[in-house]
Amino acid sequence: MVSNTQKKFISFSLLSITIFFLVFASTLYAQTPPPVSHTVSISASVGSAVVIVPGGGTSGGVILPQTAVSFSGYAYPNAQVSLLKQGELKTTVKADSTGYFSITLEEKYNSNILYSLFAQDVSGNRSLLLNYPMVVQVGYITELSGIRFAPTIVIDKSQVRVGDYLTVNGYALPQNDMEVNIVGVANKVFTLTSSSDGSYKIVLPLTDLPRGAYSIYINYKNDTRVSKLIKFTIGESNIFFTDASSSIPGDCNADKKIDLIDFSILAFWYGKPNPPKCVDTNGDGIINLIDFSILAFYWTG
């Protein structure tokens, strides 16, 4: 027989443990970062000697070791891969037929520098920006390898009639398994493999998805790096994307770019009531930091 005192003790202890799990355990689980299947690695090696001639000097020069940063990885077959330094375009290279690219940029000073990369497939579709803030040290060649861009994605409709189809296409690495994810009122995943030239095209039946707002994105199988998210709805009729429309949230001038102009438009409406629909990136009727975060996600510069 359990006495009343013991019952009270057991109840109180259970209550304490429950409070502990409610308050802390959920956050412990929430903060676990998602696994990334591809690994970007960084290394630095001493640069070879170069001769630098000081300005105005007439003889000799100062011999200093080479300082540079180097990026390599995979984009899409024959893609244009661009490198930006602190938001300014520095150079563009062409990936080979396997999608491999390599870029080296000379540097001069010790600094923390933000390098950004984006890739454009042969159809002109751009990837999201990949940012790499790096510590650059004079006299070293800092190499960042193992970069892999998520596939590009384009859809044909901004609204799909109930029970109809959605065409999705883009470019990826050749002969790679991918997943097309539709999230929204209901979720669905489709799998496919890219062709030998990296292109892919799939017609998705949306027959069992209910009316409502959705987002679609694509990723390599088992890779958490995803493509840009494209929003669409399932409704009464088909509405195709045109040159005058844009699938990018916040792209009010439909120039297919997200840059300082779009940021400024958003900034004008910051805190103001009844913003235009194209400015309100998450459709909640207010412009706040969340809208700017969504804009930053789609930034092209």
Binding site: I42, S43, A44, G87, N112, L114, S116, L128, L129, L130, N131, Y132, P133, M134, V135, Q137, Y140, T142, L144, F263, L289, F292, S293, L295, A296, F297, W299, G301
Partner: peptide, 16 residues
């Protein structure tokens, strides 16, 4: 202060 990092970052890459 408030601001954005276009393109996002995960951390600082330091080879050392």
């Amino acid at each position: 202060m408030s601001g954005i990092i276009p393109g996002g970052v995960s951390g600082l890459y330091d080879p050392s």
